[in-house]
Design a protein around this nucleic acid. Structure first.
Length: 420
RNA sequence: GCGGGUGUAGCUCAGUUGGUUAGAGCGCCAGUUUGUGGCACUGGAGGUCGCCGGUUCGAAACCGGUCACUCGCCCCA
């Protein structure tokens, strides 16, 4: 902490960037509400076990990736690395399993203790939805459609490809996993060092290894879809039929996997190549096993999450952010008029008009700054105007100026703002 | 946790084989204009050259360490 700087992997959201985030969040709230998802929030930290229990063997995540600490009472807490576990925990602790199905939308900061890189901060922000209760493939279809609709609303859907895969149910996955491990063990010596480790820890992850040698071996590896039982095949085909009906374009991606045991059936990601290595813009899937792993009843669930920073980078480039700064400024010409100008600014704000009221500099400086801030109308008030009970109303776009009586001012300004 | 690249003014960057007061553009402040903006001109403020140590008569420059940023790997719930 030698210099005063933000904690590694965190960043300030100044108004320019904040406006982009607002756009993403507001669009997502509106779009998911069209599907009946309602906004809720969970705490940004939980007992560590909420996040560690569902993870099983993937020790890297717990020890390396979680932002965990002990509080003063000695409780181990973790800043939420994602929101699904928290939402499911809220469902269990709140007894909400009595009111299924639940459709939730959330937005907020998440934390992972990782080496920062493009689009991966230690504090980042996500939006997401969770659909709790239904096991039907049509629920998956609604969730995916809501994601596609959000991307379309943001104007970025055409830069994304929907990758879709089925992991099958627990029995199908166990059978495939055994077959894959057997196949890879035969060639273990040729695997990359990373994949040798994955073979013991999380073999499905080898499927999306970036190592060329691994990819070569995988050419003849057993295929996940060949191990799906009838029920799993039916779920997937019902989903793809629904997506086709809704006009949601998708691409079958047999290498798209989820390593954790509570995942099943649907896995999907909207991927772009416009953001470097971190190409997933919005991703999710079905997690029917999660609630039980957290110690609750067996409640199915399906959902997705999306990084606000990544969406803002994509959408911000093409969607001009709505300027929220005032378009009208009240400028006093000298100190004697300041208090009257302040009162005038308040009166106009009472009338519902956004007012900028600069307090420093000469009238020339105030006008200069107002012009630079893209103020449309300057209301100039000085000794002469106080005597005559009027103001100078100057249009900074065309340089025209007129006298307006104080009593008419609010109406005149409101009308002028409506003009183009 | 591992590897590559980069750290000079608020921002974008120059800075010669190591040489004395470290520069530019933009931005900021002020003046030309004591009640009227954009342009122009003039002036000004602002830098422990990321930090610590070493080599040297002399370091922004060379060496080591460290911190930060950045790109990638691991991981990605």
């Amino acid at each position: 902490m030698s210099k005063l700087q933000p904690v590694r992997g965190t960043a300030d959201l100044l108004p320019d960037v904040m406006a982009q985030h607002r756009l993403v969040i507001d669009t997502a709230r509106r779009t998911t509400a069209r599907y009946g998802f309602q906004e809720m929030a969970t705490p940004i930290f939980e007992f560590s076990e909420v996040f560690s229990r569902p993870l099983g063997e993937s020790s890297d995540i717990v020890t390396k990736e979680n932002y965990s600490f002990a509080d003063r009472g000695g409780e181990m807490l973790t800043l939420r690395p994602e929101n699904t576990a928290g939402v499911v925990r809220a469902m269990i602790s709140g007894g909400l399993t009595q009111s299924l199905p639940l459709k939730y939308f959330y937005a907020g900061p998440m934390f992972r203790y990782e080496r920062p890189q493009k689009g991966r901060m230690r504090q980042f922000h996500q939006i997401g939805i969770e659909y709790l209760g239904p096991t039907d493939a049509l629920a998956d279809a609604e969730v995916i459609s809501a994601g596609a609709r959000l991307l379309a609303e943001l104007g970025v859907l055409d830069q994304c490809v929907l990758h879709l895969n089925s992991l099958g149910d627990a029995a199908s996955r166990a059978a495939y996993r055994a077959a894959l491990v057997a196949f890879l063990q035969a060639d273990e010596s040729r695997l990359s060092d990373d994949s040798k480790r994955r073979l013991a820890m999380n073999p499905l992850r080898i499927l999306d290894s970036k190592d060329p040698g691994d990819r070569d071996i995988l050419q003849s590896a057993p295929q996940l879809q060949d191990y799906l039982n009838a029920e799993s095949k039916a779920h997937f085909s019902a989903l793809t039929t629904a997506l086709d009906t809704a006009g949601v374009a998708w691409m079958f991606d047999p290498l798209l996997v989820r390593g954790l045991d509570y995942y099943c059936h649907t896995a999907f990601e909207f991927v772009t190549d416009a953001l470097g290595t971190q190409g997933t813009v919005l991703g999710g899937g079905r997690y029917d096993g999660l609630a039980e792993m957290l110690g609750g009843p067996a409640v199915a669930g399906v959902g997705w999450a999306a990084g606000i920073e990544r969406l803002a980078m994509l959408a911000g480039a093409k969607t001009p952010t709505a300027p929220t700064a005032p378009k009208v400024a009240v400028l006093s010409t000298d100190a004697d008029a300041d208090i009257a100008a302040f009162r005038l600014a308040e009166m106009l704000r009472d009338a519902g008009i956004d007012i900028d009221f600069p307090t420093t500099g000469s009238i020339g400086k105030k006008l200069k700054k107002a012009a630079r801030a893209e103020i449309k109308l300057a209301i100039i008030l000085g000794g002469d105007e106080l005597v005559k009970n009027n103001v100078q109303l100057r249009n900074l776009a065309d340089g025209t100026q007129s006298e307006v009586m104080m009593d008419d001012l609010a109406d005149v300004v409101a009308a002028a703002l409506l003009a183009p």
